[in-house]
């Protein structure tokens, strides 16, 4: 499966190590991705790395990339006009329900795959009951898409932001994102929750939601394993019975909980 070429239309610096790339297809485009799916992004001569989809519009695709390794550094380093390869989209999507209450809980770069969910909730606000967006980051400077929060709030979303550390110039909340969850009114029967962030944070957040009465299957998490091929053929992303690239990344907490409870699975 060969990558399709995409040209960087726009490059936005999000944080010190994270950029958002808006890309246009050079040849044919990939199939329109669903919220929660990912693609394999290829930097010429360097390699491929799985990156979640943060949006798509006007035939283009949006990826927010954190430079954590050699390949993601090369992808994040792409400048306007540069060409990258893309294969996909792969994996399961968030499965946003047609209505009800939504809780979107994101930690760090975990907000990137959730942005399409938030945008969908904004675009179709009337369909949903309460829509809460809880965002956690290391410091205020590490927050993704901060310029969009006002738009989300204006659309009637309950956006709550918290950081792990801040100086006095920060007027927002300081504390883990799960403590913000504690203060949130939740109607467990009506709620679907979408959780993405570091695995430890997802474990705590999902447990907290289940403790609040939300059914485990209504708590969806996005798993991360070593995705290489994207189509369940290379075996790297196994998590027990799951091939995360094919059966995930989005799975219900009912399936994820027993697997994440096993060390080194």
């Amino acid at each position: 499966m060969t990558p399709l070429r995409y040209r960087v239309r726009r490059r936005l610096t999000e944080t010190a190590d994270t950029v958002t790339l808006v890309l246009d297809p050079v040849d044919e485009p990939i199939v329109a991705p669903l919220p929660g799916q990912f693609t394999m992004m290829y930097a010429f001569g360097v390699g491929e790395v799985p990156i979640s989809v943060s949006g798509h519009a006007d035939g283009g695709i949006v990826h927010t990339v954190r430079a954590v390794g050699a390949v993601s550094r090369a992808v994040a380093g792409a400048r306007t006009g540069d060409v990258l390869g893309i294969r996909g989209p792969f994996g399961t999507d968030w499965g946003v329900p047609p209505g009800g209450d939504l809780v979107v809980l994101a930690g760090g770069i975990g907000l990137a795959p959730l942005r399409p969910v938030i945008r969908q909730a904004v675009a179709r606000r009337a369909r949903f009951g309460t829509v809460a967006v809880l965002i956690g980051a290391r410091t205020p400077a590490d927050l993704l898409y901060p310029h969009e929060y006002a738009t989300w709030r204006a659309a009637g979303l309950d956006v709550r932001v918290t950081v792990d550390r801040a100086d006095m110039s920060w007027t927002g909340h300081v504390g883990v994102v799960t403590t913000v969850l504690g203060a949130l009114p939740v109607d467990p029967a009506a709620t679907t929750a979408f959780v993405c962030g570091p695995e430890v944070m997802m474990r705590f957040a999902a447990r907290a939601l289940v403790d609040r009465g939300v059914p485990p299957a209504a708590v969806r998490v996005s798993l991360e394993r070593n995705m290489r091929c994207g189509v369940g053929l290379c075996g790297h992303c196994q998590l027990g019975p799951l091939l995360v690239c094919r059966d995930g990344p989005v799975v219900g907490w009912d399936r994820a909980a027993p697997l994440l409870a096993v060390k080194e699975l």
Binding site: G108, G175, P198, V200
Partner: peptide, 14 residues
């Protein structure tokens, strides 16, 4: 417990 989670500094660059 919340402090312990923060102590893990989960969002740091690995």
């Amino acid at each position: 417990q919340a402090t312990r989670v923060r102590l893990l500094d989960l969002y740091r660059m690995p």
